[in-house]
């Protein structure tokens, strides 16, 4: 009847962006009046925080603040194609496209400013909302630089696309180059199993994920924490049931999801193994975050009570049955000896 603790681990790998097909995304950038910026791209936020990530990328590239970046609505009639929101591709595909577009826009502005100052363009820097030339006293606010450009008949804009060098799979042996960037990870889970009821509580998860480069570490943590809890739902309770084609879990009273009481504390460790191909070195985190959780939890349950769950979810009934099965087996062994 005791509550027993145990630990388990699992590793994972994942591919970034669309699989076994050429992926692509485009973005437009404009350095706007007042030293702000406008970005348009085909697809953005589904909750993961990409709007903020793209604003950070544009801000860093242009030398302004993220708050000064406006990202246009996602509209097939108003923005260039960026394909879809999925496949752990947003930061990689769209982030890189935005960086490239922003660099172009910046280059236009820098050219105008450099010629105004009579300095080489490669001496001109943009940072903290200002444009300045190294080794000189030349300096002006970004907003003034934009006005200068416009007075010279230039609107500083950029347009860029980012694509992958990937192939399909051979239909016979599967060989091919499905992705150009891979990520790896590992999670450890600690559980407590109530041997009276078979309930499993996951108390802690330590999650290590290579994301290439974390544009917004807190956002990466959010993806890891959320991914782990989604996986925990599948590990322990969620179960879409269907009998003769009809669901017996038609609403959220029957299809149950983890609540704030059911979730572990998550410790995220972010690894950065930069992507050598894209301009930013970023990779991704959305999907891989949830891959190792379920086996880590099942391995931890085994460690705690010796019950191996191979059919998900590990409901209290299944866990208790597996515990009893193990007890029966060991009694059987003892009797045989």
């Amino acid at each position: 009847m005791a509550r027993r603790r145990g630990r388990g681990m699992a590793a994972c790998w994942y591919g970034i962006a669309r699989t076994a097909t050429v992926d692509r995304a485009a973005a437009w950038a404009e350095i706007d009046d007042g030293g702000t910026a406008k970005i348009a791209t085909g697809v953005t936020e589904i909750g993961e925080g990409i709007l903020t990530v793209l604003a950070q990328i544009a801000a860093e590239e242009l030398g302004i603040r993220p708050q000064d970046v406006t990202i246009g609505d996602n509209d097939t009639a108003r923005a260039p194609e960026a394909a879809h929101a999925g496949a752990t591709r947003q930061t990689y595909m769209i982030g890189n496209a935005v960086a490239l577009a922003a660099r172009q826009a910046r280059a236009q502005l820098v050219d105008v400013v450099a010629s105004q100052w009579g300095v080489a363009a490669n001496l001109v820097e943009t940072a903290n909302g200002e444009v300045f030339a190294r080794k000189t006293n030349h300096r002006m606010p970004m907003g003034d630089a934009v006005s200068l450009c416009k007075s010279r008949g230039v609107v500083p804009v950029g347009a860029a696309s980012f694509g992958t060098d990937t192939t399909g799979l051979d239909p016979v042996d599967g060989s091919g180059r499905p992705w150009q960037a891979y990520v790896f990870g590992c999670q450890v889970a600690e559980v407590e199993v109530d041997t009276l009821t078979g309930e499993v509580q996951v108390l802690g998860v330590w999650a290590v994920h290579d994301v290439g480069r974390a544009v917004n570490p807190r956002g990466v943590e959010g993806q890891i924490e959320g991914g782990i809890v989604q996986a925990l739902g599948q590990a322990l309770m969620e179960d879409y049931r269907i009998e003769n084609g009809r669901t017996t879990t038609p609403g959220l009273a029957k299809y149950i999801l983890p609540t704030a009481l059911d979730v572990p504390h998550v410790t995220s460790v972010i690894l950065e193994d930069r992507d050598p191909i894209g301009p930013l070195g970023v990779k991704g985190i959305g999907e891989p975050a949830m891959v190792p959780t379920i086996p880590a939890v099942m391995n931890a349950i085994y460690d705690a009570v010796g019950a191996r769950i191979t059919a998900l979810p590990a409901t209290p009934e299944r866990v208790l049955e597996a515990i009893k099965e193990r007890e029966r087996a060991s009694r059987h062994r003892a009797a045989a000896e």
Binding site: A11, F184, C186, V188, W206, A207, V208, D210, V269
Partner: peptide, 15 residues
């Protein structure tokens, strides 16, 4: 570059 060995070491240490 494959970061798996680093990930394993980091998880072992963190936990």
């Amino acid at each position: 570059s494959v970061s798996l060995m680093r990930a394993l070491a980091a998880a072992e240490e963190a936990a």
